Computed example of a mutant assay.
Amino acid sequence: MGNQQLRKNLKWTLGTHLRYWRNKQKLGSCGKGIFFEPGVALMRFPENIFLGSNMVLKTGARLCACNEQATIRIGENTTVGYHTYLFASAGISIGDNCLIAPFVYLVDSDHSIDRNELINRQPNQTAPISIGNDVWIGTGAKILKGVTIGEGAVIAAGALVKDDVAPYTIVGGIPAKKISERK
């Protein structure tokens, strides 16, 4: 299990069970054994959020399906770190057994920047984000629209990922570049 070490230290209380039950009512699907810490927000269209079993969502995590068509799908045994934000205007898909550290930001849209129009009147440009199984995303990393991260990849802390990442590749920097490969 990808988050086995973390899960053995979780304290299941009445509050934990109540948060699970309350959130399960809102979501499109909610697997078994999901640990919702206090202060997790399921925003705008929570019925478009689909969570696999045995996940951990840490305090301050924000999952936002921003419109009626947007979806967020997260696989089994994945941990979403403290104050991590997932904002989907098209779709964000995260595989099984992933570790997402604190303060990570995934957003699948940005604004057009035509100089002949006010910024706040310009349309969003969207493209889904896809993250494979067994991926580790380090603290403070940012994943931008249209990015696919392959199975087993590692994203270094603070990286800005604007291009696809091949399976089992380690990337870091601004913008993120290949550092190495998992052995």
Rank of each mutant, 00 (worst) to 15 (best):
Gly140Thr: 07
Asp96Ser: 06
Ser112Cys: 08
Ala157Thr: 14
Thr139Asp: 08
Thr16Cys: 10
Ala141Leu: 07
Ala127Tyr: 01
Pro128Asn: 07
Thr79Gln: 09
Ile137Cys: 08
Asn77Trp: 12
Gly75Leu: 03
Gly75Trp: 10
Lys177His: 09
Gln69Ala: 13
Lys162His: 11
Lys26Ser: 12
Ile143Cys: 05
Gly15Asp: 13
Gln25Asn: 02
Leu118His: 10
Pro38Lys: 14
Phe45Tyr: 15
Arg62Gln: 13
Glu151Asn: 15
Ala101Trp: 03
Gln69Cys: 01
Asn120Glu: 13
Val161Ile: 09
Ile74Ser: 03
Ala127Pro: 02
Ser112Tyr: 02
Ser112Glu: 15
Ile72Phe: 12
Gly28Val: 10
Gln5Ser: 14
Gly95Cys: 08
Asn3Val: 15
Trp136Asp: 11
Ile129Thr: 03
Thr79Gly: 14
Ile131Pro: 07
Leu42Ala: 06
Lys32Gly: 08
Leu6Asn: 08
Tyr105Met: 12
Gln122Val: 04
Ser112Gln: 15
Thr78Trp: 03
Ala88Val: 04
Lys145Gln: 14
Asp110Val: 01
Ser109Glu: 10
Ile137Tyr: 09
Ile149Ser: 08
Thr126Gln: 14
Ala176Cys: 10
Thr59Cys: 05
Gly132Tyr: 04
Ala88Lys: 05
Pro123Cys: 02
Lys183Ser: 12
Lys145His: 13
Ala41Cys: 10
Lys8Leu: 03
Gln122Phe: 00
Gly75Gln: 02
Trp12Glu: 14
Lys183Asn: 13
Lys32Gln: 15
Ala127Ser: 15
Ile113Trp: 05
Asn67Tyr: 12
Asn97Met: 02
Ile155Gln: 06
Met43Arg: 15
Ile113Cys: 10
Ser109Trp: 05
Leu118Arg: 14
Ile119Ser: 12
Tyr82Thr: 12
Val165Thr: 06
Ile137Lys: 03
Asn124Val: 07
Val165Gly: 04
Ser112Val: 08
Leu160Asp: 02
Ser130Trp: 00
Asp164Trp: 04
Leu106Ala: 03
Asn48Thr: 04
Val56His: 11
Gly31Arg: 11
Ile49Asp: 06
Val80Cys: 00
Asp114Ile: 05
Arg73Gln: 14
Gly75His: 04
Asn23Gly: 01
Ala157Gln: 13
Ile155His: 05
Gly172Asn: 03
Thr79His: 02
Gly33Val: 05
Ile129Glu: 01
Gly33Ile: 05
Ile174Tyr: 04
Pro46Thr: 08
Asn116Ser: 14
